[in-house]
Amino acid sequence: MNDFKELPATAVLILDGPAIERALRRIAHEIIERNPDLTSVVLAGIPSRGNEIAHRIAGFITAIEKKEISTGVIDVSMHRDDVGTRAELPIVRASQLPLPLEGRTVIIVDDVLYTGRTVRAAMDAISSFGRPSRIQLAVLIDRGHRELPIRPDYVGKNVPTSSSDRIRVRIGGRSEEEGVWTIKE
């Protein structure tokens, strides 16, 4: 996966490991504040880093409120709008959501929000499982440049970028050093 590639010399660190932890802990507090009935909430991560982030947020919520919170996985591969444009396809994973979704609040969790197309695909995927009461969106980084009318409910950090910039997130898995970097082209 691309987060294990060497960082180029032009990479600029914008969040280090402890800063990521602080951002996710704050998001956990905001989720608690906005959702009085936490038992109806499911944190659904988009693989693979969204999953890791969803589990970290769930961990903070449990630590703060002493309550378990549901997590899930939404794989958006089957719902993307760029079919036939990629030369290689990554693995598709099964989505896992606690069913039924009726009456629940599904919080989509991803690492970076950019064009909004992945989130649209995630909403589409969720509706194929049922009709939740609400869908919210939590992201670690919002880098702007939306192509669809989508805005996040919870943001770790807003990062102004130009569209030629790249964002590199290392979290979980084999990442020895966690962090978020911008790379100028």
Partner: peptide, 27 residues
């Protein structure tokens, strides 16, 4: 193995409320 792993994800589509995904829409 990659195909078998991918099939795992598609097997799960058959258990959804809507057993259809737009993956090859327009094809």
């Amino acid at each position: 193995t990659f195909i078998l792993d991918t099939a795992d994800a598609f097997k799960q589509v058959g258990t959804r409320e809507i057993k259809k995904v737009p993956a090859l829409r327009g094809k």
